[in-house]
Amino acid sequence: MQEASSDRTRVSPYIWLLVIITVAISLILLLLALQEITSEQKDETLATYLLLAGAVLLGSAAYAMIQTRKRVFRAKIESHPIMTTIECKKCGFKSTREFQRGDYIFKESERCQKCGNPTIIAAIYREVKEKEKKRFTS
């Protein structure tokens, strides 16, 4: 188990090295761009390209880091809350609570809060919020 948790949080040293080198190059390019802009015989075209290249490299390094973090973050099993609906056989009063171990559909449950008659577990379900927009559904 220990091995598994270290595996999922570990970021490859090669990626770290690549990111560091990229950041270093981008910083050099940005400094050169700054130097070019502030110099007396400034070349705006060169400064623009240097600035552009520096920004692109810096962006790439940031993207690589975000992707790596995302992969680490996603390493968990998604779980949704499971709800249990209890219904009174007599008055039809319904109440919902979180699922408890031992619950099952049609199990006799506690007395009704309203009329005191026996209740049953009428439903156990999970609610999922759809992330995608509904297209081509019909």
Partner: peptide, 16 residues
């Protein structure tokens, strides 16, 4: 490799 790490994690969690 990334997916394999995730599969290993899921497998180990399942076992646990």
């Amino acid at each position: 490799q990334g997916s394999l790490y995730r599969l290993k994690y899921i497998r180990d969690e399942g076992r646990k």
